[in-house]
Amino acid sequence: MSLVNFNKTVIKNLFSKPATRKYPFEPKVYPERTRGHVVNDMDVCVLCGLCSIKCPTHAITVDKAAKTWSIRPMSCIQCRSCVDNCPKKCLSMDTQFTEPGSEKLTKTFPQSEKAIAAQEALMKAAKERAAAAAAAKAAQAGNAANANPVANAAPAAQAPAQPAAEKKDE
């Protein structure tokens, strides 16, 4: 007798709202975790290249000389491995999928002026610190030559270690 029972479901379905959406008039609202496509915030990216090493399909190319980051969306399998491994957390996964296309594109993004400036400032600061450290070491070495070599050996060895620790903190 269950056909009669199921008829109830069928009739109910006939008069209720369809289970499907009226795409494209009613676009889908994706949940927050949907892996749509990878986006990179070029203001923050330092072009370290970790994402391209960790990408299983080699979809990402980082060109340090030309200061560009590029992705081949057709090769990307939306695994989110690059997002998890980015040290600057500038990669993220957008919930929308990329638009359909007829060509295998490569999307290239240049590093932004802001990021270049920030990176150059950092490099300059690091260089200055290194130069200062070298000068201090030279001065200390000079002192050590003059004074008792045994007493001064320990501070001289410590001097180069300091700037390295500072670098790590930034």
Binding site: T9, V10, A19, P31, R33, T34, I77, Q78, R80
Partner: peptide, 27 residues
Amino acid sequence: ESLYMECWRIREEVLDMFEIATGGRVI
């Protein structure tokens, strides 16, 4: 056919749960 549609409609809700939890419906 209507039973088939009904089964797949319910399955869709499980796939939605997967999408919420993992970000993918199939992979």
